[in-house]
Design a protein around this nucleic acid. Structure first.
Lengths: 231, 231
DNA sequence: CCTACCGGTTCTGTATACAGAATGTGGATG
DNA sequence: CATCCACATTCTGTATACAGAACCGGTAGG
Protein backbone atom coordinates (compact mmCIF):
# COMPACT_ATOMS: atom_id res chain seq x y z
CA UNK A 1 0.00 0.00 0.00
CA UNK A 2 1.04 3.56 -0.58
CA UNK A 3 2.81 4.83 2.51
CA UNK A 4 3.16 8.25 0.98
CA UNK A 5 -0.12 9.50 -0.40
CA UNK A 6 -0.11 11.80 -3.35
CA UNK A 7 -0.49 15.48 -2.63
CA UNK A 8 -3.52 15.70 -4.90
CA UNK A 9 -5.21 12.90 -2.98
CA UNK A 10 -4.52 14.58 0.33
CA UNK A 11 -5.89 17.87 -0.96
CA UNK A 12 -8.96 16.11 -2.35
CA UNK A 13 -9.73 14.22 0.83
CA UNK A 14 -9.14 17.24 3.02
CA UNK A 15 -11.37 19.49 0.96
CA UNK A 16 -14.00 16.79 0.59
CA UNK A 17 -14.09 16.18 4.32
CA UNK A 18 -14.29 19.89 5.04
CA UNK A 19 -17.19 20.31 2.64
CA UNK A 20 -19.00 17.23 3.91
CA UNK A 21 -18.49 18.27 7.52
CA UNK A 22 -19.81 21.74 6.78
CA UNK A 23 -16.54 23.41 7.72
CA UNK A 24 -16.58 24.84 4.24
CA UNK A 25 -20.10 26.19 3.98
CA UNK A 26 -22.09 26.26 0.74
CA UNK A 27 -21.24 29.33 -1.26
CA UNK A 28 -17.65 29.43 -0.04
CA UNK A 29 -15.35 30.46 -2.85
CA UNK A 30 -12.37 28.18 -3.36
CA UNK A 31 -9.54 30.19 -4.89
CA UNK A 32 -6.68 28.13 -6.21
CA UNK A 33 -3.85 30.10 -4.71
CA UNK A 34 -5.63 30.54 -1.39
CA UNK A 35 -6.36 26.84 -0.96
CA UNK A 36 -3.01 25.69 -2.27
CA UNK A 37 -1.15 27.78 0.30
CA UNK A 38 -3.56 26.75 3.05
CA UNK A 39 -3.19 23.04 2.33
CA UNK A 40 0.53 23.29 1.67
CA UNK A 41 0.46 21.88 -1.84
CA UNK A 42 1.15 23.41 -5.20
CA UNK A 43 -1.52 24.62 -7.54
CA UNK A 44 -1.13 21.65 -9.89
CA UNK A 45 -2.30 18.90 -7.51
CA UNK A 46 -4.85 21.28 -6.02
CA UNK A 47 -6.42 21.81 -9.43
CA UNK A 48 -6.66 18.06 -9.79
CA UNK A 49 -8.42 17.87 -6.42
CA UNK A 50 -10.86 20.62 -7.43
CA UNK A 51 -11.59 18.82 -10.69
CA UNK A 52 -12.52 15.70 -8.76
CA UNK A 53 -14.71 17.69 -6.40
CA UNK A 54 -16.44 19.17 -9.41
CA UNK A 55 -17.02 15.72 -10.87
CA UNK A 56 -18.54 14.74 -7.53
CA UNK A 57 -20.84 17.73 -7.66
CA UNK A 58 -19.52 19.14 -4.39
CA UNK A 59 -18.27 22.33 -6.01
CA UNK A 60 -19.46 24.05 -9.14
CA UNK A 61 -18.09 26.82 -11.33
CA UNK A 62 -19.31 30.19 -10.28
CA UNK A 63 -20.31 32.74 -12.88
CA UNK A 64 -17.08 33.57 -14.59
CA UNK A 65 -14.15 32.57 -12.46
CA UNK A 66 -13.91 30.75 -9.19
CA UNK A 67 -15.37 27.57 -7.81
CA UNK A 68 -17.91 27.60 -5.02
CA UNK A 69 -19.14 24.90 -2.67
CA UNK A 70 -22.54 23.81 -3.97
CA UNK A 71 -25.69 24.56 -2.05
CA UNK A 72 -27.59 21.72 -0.42
CA UNK A 73 -31.17 22.86 -0.57
CA UNK A 74 -34.17 20.70 0.20
CA UNK A 75 -34.75 20.57 -3.54
CA UNK A 76 -31.29 19.15 -4.20
CA UNK A 77 -31.73 16.64 -1.38
CA UNK A 78 -34.90 15.50 -3.07
CA UNK A 79 -32.97 15.13 -6.32
CA UNK A 80 -30.30 13.06 -4.58
CA UNK A 81 -32.95 10.80 -3.13
CA UNK A 82 -34.57 10.30 -6.52
CA UNK A 83 -31.29 8.92 -7.82
CA UNK A 84 -30.76 7.01 -4.62
CA UNK A 85 -34.15 5.34 -4.90
CA UNK A 86 -33.28 4.10 -8.36
CA UNK A 87 -29.78 2.88 -7.57
CA UNK A 88 -30.31 1.40 -4.12
CA UNK A 89 -33.45 -0.43 -5.15
CA UNK A 90 -31.51 -2.02 -7.99
CA UNK A 91 -28.57 -2.77 -5.68
CA UNK A 92 -30.80 -4.43 -3.11
CA UNK A 93 -32.53 -6.46 -5.78
CA UNK A 94 -29.28 -7.70 -7.29
CA UNK A 95 -27.73 -8.36 -3.90
CA UNK A 96 -30.69 -10.56 -3.03
CA UNK A 97 -30.09 -12.55 -6.18
CA UNK A 98 -26.32 -12.84 -5.99
CA UNK A 99 -25.29 -12.35 -2.38
CA UNK A 100 -24.13 -15.00 0.02
CA UNK A 101 -27.01 -15.45 2.50
CA UNK A 102 -24.56 -16.23 5.30
CA UNK A 103 -23.10 -12.73 5.13
CA UNK A 104 -26.49 -11.12 5.46
CA UNK A 105 -27.64 -13.52 8.15
CA UNK A 106 -24.72 -12.30 10.21
CA UNK A 107 -25.73 -8.69 9.56
CA UNK A 108 -29.29 -9.64 10.43
CA UNK A 109 -28.15 -10.63 13.91
CA UNK A 110 -26.34 -7.35 14.35
CA UNK A 111 -29.23 -5.22 13.15
CA UNK A 112 -31.59 -7.11 15.43
CA UNK A 113 -29.40 -6.12 18.36
CA UNK A 114 -28.95 -2.53 17.22
CA UNK A 115 -30.91 -1.08 20.14
CA UNK A 116 -28.08 -2.13 22.44
CA UNK A 117 -25.74 -0.20 20.16
CA UNK A 118 -27.86 2.91 20.32
CA UNK A 119 -27.97 2.86 24.10
CA UNK A 120 -24.22 3.16 24.36
CA UNK A 121 -22.86 6.62 24.87
CA UNK A 122 -21.87 7.48 21.32
CA UNK A 123 -22.86 10.99 20.28
CA UNK A 124 -21.70 10.60 16.69
CA UNK A 125 -23.37 7.17 16.45
CA UNK A 126 -20.15 5.73 15.10
CA UNK A 127 -21.10 2.17 15.93
CA UNK A 128 -24.47 2.48 14.25
CA UNK A 129 -23.27 4.18 11.10
CA UNK A 130 -20.37 1.78 10.95
CA UNK A 131 -22.85 -1.08 10.84
CA UNK A 132 -24.80 0.64 8.08
CA UNK A 133 -21.56 1.17 6.18
CA UNK A 134 -20.81 -2.53 6.46
CA UNK A 135 -24.23 -3.31 5.07
CA UNK A 136 -23.58 -1.00 2.12
CA UNK A 137 -20.24 -2.69 1.60
CA UNK A 138 -21.79 -6.16 1.72
CA UNK A 139 -24.39 -5.12 -0.84
CA UNK A 140 -21.75 -3.62 -3.12
CA UNK A 141 -19.65 -6.76 -2.89
CA UNK A 142 -22.65 -8.96 -3.63
CA UNK A 143 -23.82 -6.91 -6.59
CA UNK A 144 -20.34 -6.94 -8.11
CA UNK A 145 -21.00 -4.08 -10.50
CA UNK A 146 -18.31 -1.43 -10.65
CA UNK A 147 -20.49 1.13 -12.44
CA UNK A 148 -23.24 0.80 -9.84
CA UNK A 149 -20.71 0.88 -7.02
CA UNK A 150 -19.11 4.04 -8.37
CA UNK A 151 -22.44 5.81 -8.73
CA UNK A 152 -23.47 4.81 -5.22
CA UNK A 153 -20.14 5.92 -3.84
CA UNK A 154 -20.44 9.52 -5.00
CA UNK A 155 -24.04 9.53 -3.88
CA UNK A 156 -23.07 8.44 -0.37
CA UNK A 157 -20.68 11.34 -0.11
CA UNK A 158 -23.59 13.71 -0.59
CA UNK A 159 -25.63 11.74 1.92
CA UNK A 160 -23.01 12.13 4.62
CA UNK A 161 -23.21 15.83 3.97
CA UNK A 162 -26.98 15.67 4.41
CA UNK A 163 -26.59 13.65 7.59
CA UNK A 164 -24.34 16.28 9.13
CA UNK A 165 -27.04 18.85 8.50
CA UNK A 166 -28.83 17.80 11.66
CA UNK A 167 -28.43 15.11 14.29
CA UNK A 168 -30.83 12.22 13.89
CA UNK A 169 -33.18 11.75 16.79
CA UNK A 170 -33.07 8.36 18.55
CA UNK A 171 -36.60 7.45 17.55
CA UNK A 172 -35.76 7.81 13.88
CA UNK A 173 -32.56 5.81 14.24
CA UNK A 174 -34.45 3.00 15.88
CA UNK A 175 -37.05 3.01 13.13
CA UNK A 176 -34.35 3.14 10.48
CA UNK A 177 -32.67 0.14 12.05
CA UNK A 178 -35.93 -1.78 11.81
CA UNK A 179 -36.20 -0.86 8.14
CA UNK A 180 -32.62 -1.96 7.57
CA UNK A 181 -33.36 -5.19 9.33
CA UNK A 182 -36.13 -5.97 6.89
CA UNK A 183 -33.85 -5.22 3.95
CA UNK A 184 -31.17 -7.51 5.32
CA UNK A 185 -33.69 -10.26 6.01
CA UNK A 186 -35.04 -10.01 2.49
CA UNK A 187 -31.56 -10.26 0.98
CA UNK A 188 -30.64 -13.16 3.24
CA UNK A 189 -33.85 -14.91 2.14
CA UNK A 190 -32.97 -14.16 -1.52
CA UNK A 191 -36.28 -12.33 -1.91
CA UNK A 192 -35.29 -9.74 -4.50
CA UNK A 193 -38.64 -7.99 -4.75
CA UNK A 194 -39.08 -7.69 -1.01
CA UNK A 195 -35.55 -6.29 -0.76
CA UNK A 196 -36.41 -3.73 -3.43
CA UNK A 197 -39.66 -2.73 -1.76
CA UNK A 198 -38.11 -2.58 1.70
CA UNK A 199 -35.42 -0.30 0.31
CA UNK A 200 -38.07 1.99 -1.15
CA UNK A 201 -39.82 2.10 2.20
CA UNK A 202 -36.60 2.94 4.00
CA UNK A 203 -35.66 5.71 1.59
CA UNK A 204 -39.16 7.15 1.68
CA UNK A 205 -39.06 7.34 5.47
CA UNK A 206 -35.53 8.71 5.50
CA UNK A 207 -36.40 11.51 3.12
CA UNK A 208 -39.62 12.21 4.99
CA UNK A 209 -37.68 12.51 8.24
CA UNK A 210 -35.22 14.92 6.69
CA UNK A 211 -38.01 17.06 5.32
CA UNK A 212 -39.73 17.07 8.70
CA UNK A 213 -36.56 18.14 10.50
CA UNK A 214 -35.85 20.79 7.91
CA UNK A 215 -39.38 22.11 8.35
CA UNK A 216 -38.83 22.39 12.07
CA UNK A 217 -35.56 24.25 11.76
CA UNK A 218 -36.91 26.11 8.76
CA UNK A 219 -34.64 29.09 8.43
CA UNK A 220 -31.80 27.53 10.42
CA UNK A 221 -29.53 25.15 8.47
CA UNK A 222 -29.06 25.06 4.73
CA UNK A 223 -27.92 28.24 3.17
CA UNK A 224 -26.52 30.72 5.63
CA UNK A 225 -24.10 33.00 3.82
CA UNK A 226 -21.11 33.24 6.20
CA UNK A 227 -18.28 33.90 3.79
CA UNK A 228 -14.86 33.04 5.08
CA UNK A 229 -12.22 35.32 3.71
CA UNK A 230 -13.86 38.71 3.32
CA UNK A 231 -12.99 40.85 6.35
CA UNK B 1 -20.15 31.03 -25.53
CA UNK B 2 -16.48 30.28 -25.37
CA UNK B 3 -14.93 31.01 -28.73
CA UNK B 4 -11.64 29.58 -27.59
CA UNK B 5 -12.03 26.23 -25.93
CA UNK B 6 -9.61 25.25 -23.25
CA UNK B 7 -6.81 22.91 -24.21
CA UNK B 8 -7.81 20.42 -21.54
CA UNK B 9 -11.35 20.32 -22.95
CA UNK B 10 -10.09 19.73 -26.46
CA UNK B 11 -7.82 16.95 -25.25
CA UNK B 12 -10.64 15.39 -23.27
CA UNK B 13 -13.13 15.48 -26.12
CA UNK B 14 -10.61 14.20 -28.63
CA UNK B 15 -9.55 11.28 -26.46
CA UNK B 16 -13.12 10.52 -25.47
CA UNK B 17 -14.25 10.48 -29.09
CA UNK B 18 -11.34 8.29 -30.08
CA UNK B 19 -12.10 5.81 -27.31
CA UNK B 20 -15.82 5.81 -28.03
CA UNK B 21 -15.23 5.39 -31.76
CA UNK B 22 -12.86 2.50 -31.12
CA UNK B 23 -9.92 4.29 -32.70
CA UNK B 24 -8.21 3.79 -29.38
CA UNK B 25 -8.82 0.12 -28.72
CA UNK B 26 -9.28 -1.32 -25.24
CA UNK B 27 -5.94 -2.06 -23.66
CA UNK B 28 -4.20 0.82 -25.40
CA UNK B 29 -1.71 2.44 -23.08
CA UNK B 30 -2.04 6.21 -22.81
CA UNK B 31 1.33 7.65 -21.91
CA UNK B 32 1.25 11.27 -20.86
CA UNK B 33 4.14 12.50 -22.95
CA UNK B 34 3.11 10.48 -25.98
CA UNK B 35 -0.47 11.79 -25.97
CA UNK B 36 0.47 15.35 -25.11
CA UNK B 37 2.80 15.58 -28.09
CA UNK B 38 0.27 13.87 -30.33
CA UNK B 39 -2.57 16.21 -29.35
CA UNK B 40 -0.34 19.25 -29.29
CA UNK B 41 -1.02 20.25 -25.71
CA UNK B 42 1.15 20.29 -22.64
CA UNK B 43 1.16 17.60 -20.03
CA UNK B 44 -0.79 19.68 -17.52
CA UNK B 45 -4.07 19.95 -19.43
CA UNK B 46 -3.62 16.42 -20.72
CA UNK B 47 -3.44 15.09 -17.17
CA UNK B 48 -6.69 16.91 -16.47
CA UNK B 49 -8.26 15.24 -19.48
CA UNK B 50 -7.03 11.83 -18.38
CA UNK B 51 -8.43 12.42 -14.90
CA UNK B 52 -11.84 13.13 -16.39
CA UNK B 53 -11.64 10.03 -18.55
CA UNK B 54 -10.81 8.02 -15.45
CA UNK B 55 -13.80 9.49 -13.64
CA UNK B 56 -15.92 8.45 -16.62
CA UNK B 57 -14.57 4.93 -16.40
CA UNK B 58 -13.19 5.03 -19.93
CA UNK B 59 -9.61 4.53 -18.82
CA UNK B 60 -8.28 2.87 -15.71
CA UNK B 61 -4.91 2.74 -14.01
CA UNK B 62 -2.84 -0.17 -15.13
CA UNK B 63 -0.78 -2.10 -12.63
CA UNK B 64 1.82 0.34 -11.49
CA UNK B 65 2.13 3.13 -13.97
CA UNK B 66 0.24 4.00 -17.08
CA UNK B 67 -3.43 4.37 -17.94
CA UNK B 68 -5.13 1.97 -20.31
CA UNK B 69 -8.40 2.16 -22.20
CA UNK B 70 -10.85 -0.04 -20.31
CA UNK B 71 -12.14 -3.26 -21.78
CA UNK B 72 -15.76 -3.49 -22.86
CA UNK B 73 -16.62 -7.11 -22.24
CA UNK B 74 -20.09 -8.57 -22.36
CA UNK B 75 -19.93 -8.66 -18.57
CA UNK B 76 -19.25 -4.94 -18.33
CA UNK B 77 -22.03 -4.22 -20.83
CA UNK B 78 -24.36 -6.16 -18.58
CA UNK B 79 -23.19 -4.05 -15.64
CA UNK B 80 -23.83 -0.87 -17.59
CA UNK B 81 -27.32 -2.03 -18.42
CA UNK B 82 -28.06 -2.84 -14.79
CA UNK B 83 -27.35 0.76 -13.89
CA UNK B 84 -29.17 1.95 -16.96
CA UNK B 85 -32.28 -0.01 -16.01
CA UNK B 86 -32.34 1.67 -12.64
CA UNK B 87 -31.72 5.20 -13.85
CA UNK B 88 -33.77 5.26 -17.05
CA UNK B 89 -36.76 3.66 -15.39
CA UNK B 90 -36.69 6.38 -12.76
CA UNK B 91 -36.16 9.06 -15.40
CA UNK B 92 -39.11 7.83 -17.46
CA UNK B 93 -41.31 7.66 -14.39
CA UNK B 94 -40.45 11.18 -13.29
CA UNK B 95 -40.73 12.57 -16.81
CA UNK B 96 -44.24 11.15 -17.03
CA UNK B 97 -45.14 12.99 -13.85
CA UNK B 98 -43.47 16.29 -14.58
CA UNK B 99 -43.08 16.61 -18.33
CA UNK B 100 -45.08 18.79 -20.65
CA UNK B 101 -47.33 16.40 -22.62
CA UNK B 102 -47.15 18.65 -25.68
CA UNK B 103 -43.42 18.03 -26.03
CA UNK B 104 -43.86 14.28 -25.98
CA UNK B 105 -46.89 14.35 -28.24
CA UNK B 106 -44.66 16.00 -30.83
CA UNK B 107 -42.03 13.31 -30.32
CA UNK B 108 -44.79 10.72 -30.57
CA UNK B 109 -45.55 11.91 -34.09
CA UNK B 110 -41.93 11.67 -35.08
CA UNK B 111 -41.44 8.21 -33.63
CA UNK B 112 -44.60 7.02 -35.36
CA UNK B 113 -43.05 8.09 -38.66
CA UNK B 114 -39.64 6.70 -37.92
CA UNK B 115 -39.84 4.01 -40.61
CA UNK B 116 -39.63 6.76 -43.21
CA UNK B 117 -36.47 7.91 -41.49
CA UNK B 118 -34.94 4.45 -41.61
CA UNK B 119 -35.61 4.07 -45.32
CA UNK B 120 -33.46 7.05 -46.16
CA UNK B 121 -29.91 6.34 -47.14
CA UNK B 122 -28.16 7.02 -43.86
CA UNK B 123 -25.57 4.40 -42.99
CA UNK B 124 -24.76 5.90 -39.58
CA UNK B 125 -28.49 6.35 -38.82
CA UNK B 126 -27.83 9.93 -37.87
CA UNK B 127 -31.46 10.96 -38.24
CA UNK B 128 -32.68 8.08 -36.11
CA UNK B 129 -30.14 8.44 -33.34
CA UNK B 130 -30.66 12.18 -33.42
CA UNK B 131 -34.33 11.61 -32.68
CA UNK B 132 -33.46 9.27 -29.82
CA UNK B 133 -31.06 11.88 -28.49
CA UNK B 134 -33.82 14.46 -28.57
CA UNK B 135 -36.04 12.09 -26.60
CA UNK B 136 -33.31 11.68 -24.01
CA UNK B 137 -32.96 15.43 -23.87
CA UNK B 138 -36.68 15.95 -23.44
CA UNK B 139 -36.74 13.42 -20.61
CA UNK B 140 -33.78 15.05 -18.90
CA UNK B 141 -35.40 18.45 -19.15
CA UNK B 142 -38.68 17.17 -17.79
CA UNK B 143 -37.09 15.33 -14.89
CA UNK B 144 -35.10 18.42 -13.92
CA UNK B 145 -32.65 16.55 -11.72
CA UNK B 146 -29.01 17.44 -12.19
CA UNK B 147 -27.70 14.39 -10.32
CA UNK B 148 -29.77 12.03 -12.43
CA UNK B 149 -28.85 13.87 -15.61
CA UNK B 150 -25.15 13.67 -14.78
CA UNK B 151 -25.30 9.95 -14.07
CA UNK B 152 -27.20 9.32 -17.28
CA UNK B 153 -24.78 11.42 -19.25
CA UNK B 154 -21.70 9.38 -18.37
CA UNK B 155 -23.71 6.23 -18.92
CA UNK B 156 -24.68 7.33 -22.43
CA UNK B 157 -21.04 7.80 -23.30
CA UNK B 158 -20.46 4.14 -22.60
CA UNK B 159 -23.54 3.24 -24.59
CA UNK B 160 -22.28 5.02 -27.68
CA UNK B 161 -19.15 2.95 -27.33
CA UNK B 162 -21.29 -0.18 -27.18
CA UNK B 163 -23.29 0.95 -30.19
CA UNK B 164 -20.14 1.34 -32.28
CA UNK B 165 -19.26 -2.24 -31.47
CA UNK B 166 -21.56 -3.48 -34.18
CA UNK B 167 -24.03 -1.96 -36.60
CA UNK B 168 -27.65 -2.41 -35.61
CA UNK B 169 -29.70 -4.39 -38.06
CA UNK B 170 -32.76 -2.67 -39.53
CA UNK B 171 -35.19 -5.09 -37.91
CA UNK B 172 -33.89 -4.27 -34.46
CA UNK B 173 -34.00 -0.53 -35.16
CA UNK B 174 -37.60 -0.78 -36.24
CA UNK B 175 -38.51 -2.75 -33.14
CA UNK B 176 -36.60 -0.32 -30.95
CA UNK B 177 -38.53 2.55 -32.48
CA UNK B 178 -41.78 0.83 -31.58
CA UNK B 179 -40.57 0.44 -28.02
CA UNK B 180 -39.57 4.08 -27.90
CA UNK B 181 -42.97 5.02 -29.25
CA UNK B 182 -44.66 3.29 -26.35
CA UNK B 183 -42.42 5.07 -23.87
CA UNK B 184 -43.19 8.42 -25.43
CA UNK B 185 -46.92 7.70 -25.48
CA UNK B 186 -46.86 6.73 -21.84
CA UNK B 187 -45.05 9.91 -20.85
CA UNK B 188 -47.38 12.04 -22.96
CA UNK B 189 -50.32 10.34 -21.25
CA UNK B 190 -48.68 10.98 -17.85
CA UNK B 191 -48.77 7.27 -17.13
CA UNK B 192 -45.69 6.95 -14.95
CA UNK B 193 -45.87 3.22 -14.33
CA UNK B 194 -46.41 2.38 -17.98
CA UNK B 195 -43.48 4.60 -18.88
CA UNK B 196 -41.34 2.75 -16.35
CA UNK B 197 -42.42 -0.67 -17.57
CA UNK B 198 -42.02 0.26 -21.23
CA UNK B 199 -38.50 1.45 -20.47
CA UNK B 200 -37.70 -1.86 -18.82
CA UNK B 201 -39.02 -3.69 -21.87
CA UNK B 202 -36.93 -1.57 -24.20
CA UNK B 203 -33.74 -2.04 -22.20
CA UNK B 204 -34.32 -5.75 -21.89
CA UNK B 205 -34.70 -6.09 -25.65
CA UNK B 206 -31.74 -3.83 -26.34
CA UNK B 207 -29.44 -5.85 -24.10
CA UNK B 208 -30.78 -9.08 -25.51
CA UNK B 209 -30.04 -7.89 -29.02
CA UNK B 210 -26.50 -6.95 -28.09
CA UNK B 211 -25.92 -10.33 -26.50
CA UNK B 212 -27.30 -12.06 -29.56
CA UNK B 213 -25.06 -10.12 -31.92
CA UNK B 214 -22.05 -10.71 -29.71
CA UNK B 215 -22.84 -14.41 -29.70
CA UNK B 216 -22.92 -14.45 -33.47
CA UNK B 217 -19.63 -12.64 -33.85
CA UNK B 218 -18.28 -14.49 -30.82
CA UNK B 219 -14.53 -14.16 -31.15
CA UNK B 220 -14.71 -11.12 -33.39
CA UNK B 221 -15.36 -7.83 -31.60
CA UNK B 222 -14.52 -7.05 -27.99
CA UNK B 223 -10.94 -7.54 -27.06
CA UNK B 224 -8.72 -7.88 -30.09
CA UNK B 225 -5.22 -6.71 -29.19
CA UNK B 226 -4.12 -4.59 -32.18
CA UNK B 227 -1.94 -2.02 -30.48
CA UNK B 228 -1.45 1.19 -32.34
CA UNK B 229 2.04 2.54 -31.88
CA UNK B 230 4.27 -0.53 -31.64
CA UNK B 231 5.89 -1.06 -35.04
C1' DC C 1 -25.60 62.02 -10.07
C1' DC C 2 -25.11 58.46 -13.08
C1' DT C 3 -22.46 56.22 -16.72
C1' DA C 4 -18.73 54.76 -19.43
C1' DC C 5 -14.01 54.00 -19.95
C1' DC C 6 -9.38 52.92 -18.44
C1' DG C 7 -5.69 51.28 -15.59
C1' DG C 8 -4.23 48.10 -12.09
C1' DT C 9 -4.55 43.85 -9.92
C1' DT C 10 -5.69 39.20 -9.37
C1' DC C 11 -6.88 34.95 -11.09
C1' DT C 12 -7.06 31.11 -14.27
C1' DG C 13 -4.96 28.25 -17.84
C1' DT C 14 -0.77 26.52 -19.84
C1' DA C 15 4.00 25.35 -20.34
C1' DT C 16 8.17 23.68 -18.59
C1' DA C 17 11.63 22.19 -15.34
C1' DC C 18 12.91 19.09 -11.67
C1' DA C 19 12.86 15.16 -8.33
C1' DG C 20 11.63 10.60 -7.04
C1' DA C 21 10.15 6.10 -8.23
C1' DA C 22 9.43 2.21 -11.05
C1' DT C 23 10.72 -0.71 -14.82
C1' DG C 24 13.57 -3.01 -17.87
C1' DT C 25 18.14 -4.44 -19.24
C1' DG C 26 22.67 -5.80 -19.11
C1' DG C 27 26.28 -8.14 -17.08
C1' DA C 28 28.26 -10.87 -13.65
C1' DT C 29 28.02 -14.81 -10.78
C1' DG C 30 26.33 -19.23 -8.95
C1' DC D 1 22.03 -21.68 -18.27
C1' DA D 2 19.48 -19.40 -14.78
C1' DT D 3 19.33 -15.82 -11.35
C1' DC D 4 20.27 -11.75 -9.08
C1' DC D 5 21.92 -7.19 -8.69
C1' DA D 6 23.15 -2.69 -10.40
C1' DC D 7 22.59 0.77 -13.56
C1' DA D 8 20.24 3.53 -16.89
C1' DT D 9 16.19 5.11 -18.89
C1' DT D 10 11.64 6.59 -18.71
C1' DC D 11 7.62 7.96 -16.53
C1' DT D 12 4.82 10.06 -13.07
C1' DG D 13 3.99 13.66 -9.63
C1' DT D 14 4.99 18.27 -8.18
C1' DA D 15 6.53 22.94 -8.29
C1' DT D 16 7.05 27.19 -10.53
C1' DA D 17 7.08 30.61 -14.13
C1' DC D 18 4.53 33.05 -17.62
C1' DA D 19 0.72 34.85 -20.56
C1' DG D 20 -3.94 36.09 -21.24
C1' DA D 21 -8.31 37.25 -19.48
C1' DA D 22 -11.57 38.79 -16.19
C1' DC D 23 -12.84 41.78 -12.25
C1' DC D 24 -12.46 46.10 -9.43
C1' DG D 25 -11.48 50.60 -8.55
C1' DG D 26 -11.17 55.25 -9.87
C1' DT D 27 -11.86 59.05 -12.81
C1' DA D 28 -13.65 61.82 -16.32
C1' DG D 29 -17.46 63.04 -19.08
C1' DG D 30 -22.38 63.56 -20.03
Amino acid sequence: MAVTQRASDRAYQTLRDEIVEWELRPGSVLGEVEQSTRLGVSRTPLREALARLMADGLVSPQSGRGLVVTELSLASIREIFEVRQALEEQAARLAARRGDPAVFEQLEIEFAAVNDLLEHDDPARHAYYGLVARLDEAIDDSVDNSYLAAALSTLRTHLVRVRRLAVDDPARLSAAAAEHLLIVQAIAARDAELAAHATQVHLHQALRNIQKMAHLHQSAGATSPAPKGTP
